[in-house]
Each structure stands twice: as structure tokens, then as C-alpha cells.
Write a protein that binds this DNA or RNA. Structure first.
Lengths: 218, 218, 218, 218
DNA sequence: GATGAATGAGTCTTCATTCAT
DNA sequence: CATGAATGAAGACTCATTCAT
């Protein structure tokens, strides 16, 4: 009994080691230059180990991508929840979380997007994720507008919102010519303007979470 | 003398053939799947020819990326010029040109960015280009604001402008869940709102250029 | 003392388990596809156990081959003995036993031969076995001929006998285009003709042995 | 035009080089120990060349096997044809050709048979070949029997014939405890006895062919 | 003694690069 | 100059063996 449990734990631990090693390797050497060699080095295991826990290198890469997305998604949900019940505050939280702090693995996402272009499975995964985020944004906007008796082009506003975030994130990742605080401010200001709210009432700093950070670790 | 010139021309032709073949290959097979084989096939030359005109496959890829950027840049400049002297109209033209039409090689740019992350030279190239575009935007915004006696946060507005464009382009490239007309509309509306202009006065269709298309050809 | 004996018994049991698992694995998955993994699965033991009882996988394979040969040899001896004292009947029994029944591990022998070609030890083993069988055949033929006052080219006849058996077995193993009864009949008829005996007097069915089957078990 | 022809020639030459190198490697090191490395060494080419002329190592092995079989088959047909129109003489020729001389690659066949056990494609190929040889034997036996007004169990006799040959060949390959002349003699004597012919009239030496040897070369 | 997780040598395969023609 | 055949380095994957528990 105990042995079986322990074994499962070991398997999960090792898989996680490899996944984090993969993300580190991609962040460090780039996607193209990440070989089984570099991944295993970053994971602190031998080259042959991948075969024990993943079908192939490709399988590991997929797992790493999904893990990263899942972590970011989870992080976003927590931030939104922490913002309380007000849909407008939740919107702001959703907009700021992407720029909450100097994230690890920021470059990895870009590598994965590039890869997704010629990987249908990855692309599908990405599209689902973004569609969900946009749908969630639309729901919050609908409620916030209703509370204010405003008429807003929900669909286009949600699109602006998500793509403004992506665009700011993309530029920041590639250029580092502006900082995260600027990103947060721009997003907050845009959403405040949309709902005729005073930005001064909505700080760009994220509420500190009490519990342990749900960030990707490694 | 003439022979030397002709030779230079031939060299340039061949280099261009290979560059366009590279872009076609990436668009067709993806970045990872583009081999010397596929590139030369697309270029209509034999496998060994790359060595005559480029230091290496990597050198060719860099050249192709820079070529693409140069073309897009040139295209943007022409569009802006075609918009006439009015800085506001020029701004709109600059914002719409990215979404002017279903572009060839849209995916290549994303690959290019991903590659740039681990290639200092490419990254530098990219940063210069974007800095220039932002600077140009700032100049136009300054003039447009002055004409209207408006006070505008130029730096942040320019940042919004460029990153909104990038974000919309990124989402369109990856998801195809919205169309180019939507992108054009969102960009136009945002810039019109910034300057208190009526979007109805500014169509999202690009003025037809009389001269030959400066688009990347191949 | 008893403990030591018991231990030796355990060792022999384990070795036998592994040997039979090896034969099963080869028969089931083929020689090339038999890995330490499949062998240990078939043996019902863990992967690391081979190292305790055999020097290496190769050592185990050799042991399995020799075990199989020893079993088949033993089986043949028993069949000959069961045929009674008459040398001619003994000859027939020796000829039929190979085709006595749909044997397990029929394919293993062919793999064994192929392997023996580049394994001097195995080859030596095989040659000794076949030499002994041929010598035994020669003795029986000599006696059977003497009883009948016949002059027979003993050496060549024995060679025909053994190689006819091998050839029929080989074809049956590879092709399954004829059945074991045909093999038994052809061997019996040939040997009967050699000694001018009426085949009708010598059934191709093997006498049932009373004792436990000496077959390779597993 | 000439270039295309030359290219085809080169391709065929290279493929043949690799096939012969494969056979040499198997003969020299055994089937299991033949790696891309040893094969290319024997072929006198670099390790990467296989990929240019064969889909994979496995594809090359299949080609080598089929080449060997085709050569042996061709050789047999020529020998039978050289024996003239008499079906009985043709039968003898067919029986002797296998033992005509110390063949190259004699061990390779055994390795291939062993491999065929777990390779359906190979097995199918082998079965077809043997079925054809047996059918051809049956036709010759039918004619030879008709000429002599004899009644013969054609099917069983053909089976005896082919399997006697295989058995003698197998023992000779594995044991070398008897020579090819003995094999030839035994086969000839058996077939002569079947048709009541005097072996003395049928030498075991093969008629010398005038043309160049069709043997597998390399 | 038994387990199975971990290792790393060995293999096949791909592909950018070279070079004789 | 252009070709494409040949090379060999580098990659991912397999699997017999080892060893801590």
C-alpha cells in the first residue's frame, strides 16, 4: 500500500523535475537549442531518464507547455478571486496579473507560440485557453456594464483587453524597453476609462496573497 | 566592368531567390521543418548552392528575417506617405497597414521573434525597428495633439498604439478567431477616441497605391 | 546445513524460472524483441533479478538454449527407450519424436542456430549434440542391418536420416505448409524402405508414456 | 539525358554496394552484430550514406535479403536450364545446385530465416519462394514419372526432395562435419532411386556454364 | 534476497556542410 | 558557376546493467 503511494509520488516528482528542467532549459538556451542533454542537465538527471517518464522528448515538451499554462491559469484565477466579488475589480485583477512580477519562464511562452504554429495539438490547446479567457472577460464586462447601466460593445472590448495585454507582454518580453509598472498602469487606465472609473481608486499593485505562491516553481 | 556589374546583379538575384525560398519554406513547412532541402526546393536551386551565397543556413535565415522586416518597414513608410501630410491621417495609416491584407509570411515573424530571444543580433535588429516605429508614432502624435491644442501623454499613448497593434496581430496570427477588418476597426477607433475624432470620417480601408506593390514578393 | 540446501534449491528454482521465462519470451515476442523487460515479465520477477542469478542477459540466453536442447535430448532418449529393445523400432521412435506434437519453443531452436553461427561455444554445443545423435543412429542402423543380414551404407544413411528430420522440421517451422503427421509419415516411410519393412506395421503415433512428461514446461 | 542515365547508374551501383556490404557484414559479424557502422565499413562508405539510398537500415536488410534470394533463384534457374530438356536431368540439376560450390553468404540465409520468424514480410517472401520451388519440382516429377509410366506420390516426393536439400544444407552450414560432395551424392542417389535410374549415369558435378558466373559477387 | 529507479553506452537517423565533377 | 553525392557530427531513443532501499 504505502509502497504504491510512494511510487506514485516518486513518479510525479520526477515528472515535475523534468518538466521544470525543460522550462529552465528553454528559458536558458532557447527552444531550438534545448536538447535531451540540456534538459536532463537542468533537471539534474541522466539522459536516459526521460524515457522512463515520458513517451518521448516531444511528449515532455507538451507536458511542460501545459504545465506552464496551467500554472499561469491557476495564478490568474486566484488573483481574480482575491479581488473580491466586484466584477470591475475582478477585471482589473485579471488585467494586472500578467504583469504582477518578473515572471520566470517569460520567454518560454513565446517559444511555445512559435512552435504552436506548426503543431496542431499545441495550437488547439492555446486557442482553447485564450477563448476561455476572453469569454471570462466578456462575462465580467457584461456584469460591470449592467451595474453601471452602460452599453458597451462587449465583444470588441474584450478583444481589445486581451490583445492589449498580449501586446504589452510581447513587447516587454522582447524589448525590455518599458517596465511592468507601465504595463499595469496602461491596462488599468484603459479599463477604467472604458467604465468611467477613476484610476486613482484602483492601485496597480496586486493584493498580497496570504498563502504560498502558486507560481511556477523550480 | 559591365561583366562585374552583371555578376553583382546575378549574386543579388540569387541571394534574393534563396531568401524568398526561405520565407516560403518557413510559411509552408514551419520553421522547425525547414531544412536546406526544402529551402532549396522552394528556391528552385540545388542543395549545394546555399554555400555559394551565404555563410551558412543560419546566415541565410538571418538574412531572410531581416529582408522580411525591411519589406514590412518599407511598406509601412509608403502607406504613411500615401496618407498625405495630415499627422492624424498618417497615424491611422501607420496603424492600419499591419492589417492591410492577408499577408504572406505572417507566421514567419513570430518564428523570427522566438529566434531573436536567443540571438542577440536579431534581437538588436528588432529593438531598433520597434524603437524607430515608436519614435515615429510619438512625433506624429505630438504634431496631431499640437494641432488640436490637446495635452496627451505621448510616450504612453505611443506605447499603447504599438502594443495594441502587436497584440491584435499576434492573436490574429495564432488564433484566426477574429478577422483583419476587426483589427483595423479597433485600432482606428482607439486612435480616433484619443484625439476626439469621429471614426466615421476615417475609413478602415487603405488608400490604393498607384505604384507597384512594395510587398514582399515570391 | 538444511538451510544451505534449501538455498541451493531456491537458486535452482529461480534460475529455472528465468530460463523458462526466457524461452516463453522468445517464442512470444521473437528473439530480437526479447528484452530483459519482457523476459522478467514472463518469469514473474523484477527486472533487476537477472543479475543475481546470471552473469548477464547473454549468459541467461545461453543457459536457456542449453536447457532447451537438454530437454529435447532427454525427451528423445525416453522415446527411444520406450520403443523397446528392437533397434529398428528404436530408430523409428528416434525419427518420430521430433514431430511428436506441436512443440512449444519450436522457433527458439532456429534462433539458437542462427546465434550459434557467431558464438563458438554454442556452436560447439550444437555440434556435439548432433554428432551424438548421428552416432546413436549409426549404432541402431548397424544393429538393425545385422539382424536383417543387410549391407547398408551406415554413415550416409544416418546422415540422410538426421538431415531429413532437420529439413522437415525446418520447413514446418518456417512455413506451416504441411503438418506434423506428414513429417512423421515421410520419415517412417523412408526408414522402412531402407530396411525393407512394411510401413503399415509401424504406426506414426508415438506410444504414450506412462510417466510424467519430460517436456519443457513453463 | 546522359546525366540522368549516369545518375541512375550511380544509384544502382551504390545500392548494390550497400547490399553487398550488408551481406558481408552479416556473414562476418552475424545478424545481431551488424550495425549501420559495420555495414557501411564493409561497403566502404560513410555512416550517413544509407539514408540516401534506403529508407532505413531495415529497408536495406530487406533489400539485401531479396537480392540474395533473387541471385540464388536465378542461379538455380540457369542450372536447370543448362541441364537440357530432360525433366529428370533438370530435377537432378535443381537438387545439386544448392551444393554446387562453397557459397558465399551461406550463413546469411540462416540469419534471415531466424529473422523471418518475427517478420511477416520476410516470412511471406520466403514462403512464396519455397512454394514456387516445390511447385516447380512437382511439375518436373510429374513429367519424369509420365515418361517412365510410373506412379509416384508427387506431393510427398517433392516435399522430401526440398526438405532433404534444406536439411543437408542446414547441417553443412552449421556443422561442416560433412562436405558438399556428400550432399550432392545423397541428393542424386535419392532422386535416382525414386525413378529407378542408375546414379552412375548422372555425375554430381555441375555442367560448367560458359558465361560469367551469375553468383552473388562482392 | 528482491526491487525498480537510474544510468550511460550504443544504435539509428537526420541534416548542414563539403567537394569532386 | 552549379550540382548533388558524400560526409560525419549531433540528435533522440533503447536497453542491459547497476545499486540504494
Amino acid at each position: 500500500m504505502k509502497r504504491a503511494i510512494k511510487r506514485v509520488l516518486t513518479i510525479e516528482t520526477r515528472r515535475n523535475d523534468l518538466i521544470l528542467g525543460t522550462l529552465r532549459s528553454i528559458e536558458k538556451y532557447g527552444y531550438q537549442n534545448s536538447t535531451v542533454q540540456t534538459i536532463c542537465e537542468e533537471s539534474g538527471v541522466s539522459r536516459g531518464l526521460i524515457g522512463h517518464y515520458f513517451e518521448s522528448k516531444d511528449d515532455l515538451l507538451m507536458a511542460a507547455f501545459q504545465h506552464l499554462n496551467a500554472e499561469l491559469d491557476k495564478e490568474a484565477r486566484l488573483a481574480v478571486r482575491a479581488a473580491g466579488p466586484d466584477p470591475f475589480r475582478r477585471l482589473i485583477a485579471a488585467g494586472l496579473i500578467t504583469f504582477a512580477q518578473e515572471r520566470r519562464y517569460s520567454q518560454v511562452t513565446l517559444h511555445f507560440w512559435s512552435t504552436a504554429l506548426s503543431n496542431p495539438k499545441l495550437l488547439e490547446h492555446h486557442r482553447n485557453l485564450w477563448a476561455r479567457f476572453r469569454a471570462s472577460t466578456e462575462r465580467l464586462m457584461t456584469r460591470a456594464a449592467a451595474e453601471r447601466n452602460m452599453e458597451i460593445d462587449i465583444r470588441h472590448s474584450a478583444l481589445m483587453f486581451t490583445q492589449l495585454i498580449d501586446g504589452l507582454w510581447l513587447g516587454w518580453t522582447l524589448e525590455k524597453s518599458y517596465d511592468l509598472e507601465t504595463c499595469r498602469m496602461l491596462v488599468r487606465d484603459w479599463i477604467c476609462k472604458l467604465f468611467n472609473e477613476d484610476p486613482a481608486n484602483y492601485p496597480t499593485t496586486m493584493p498580497v496573497r496570504e498563502e504560498g505562491s502558486p507560481h511556477v516553481q523550480g
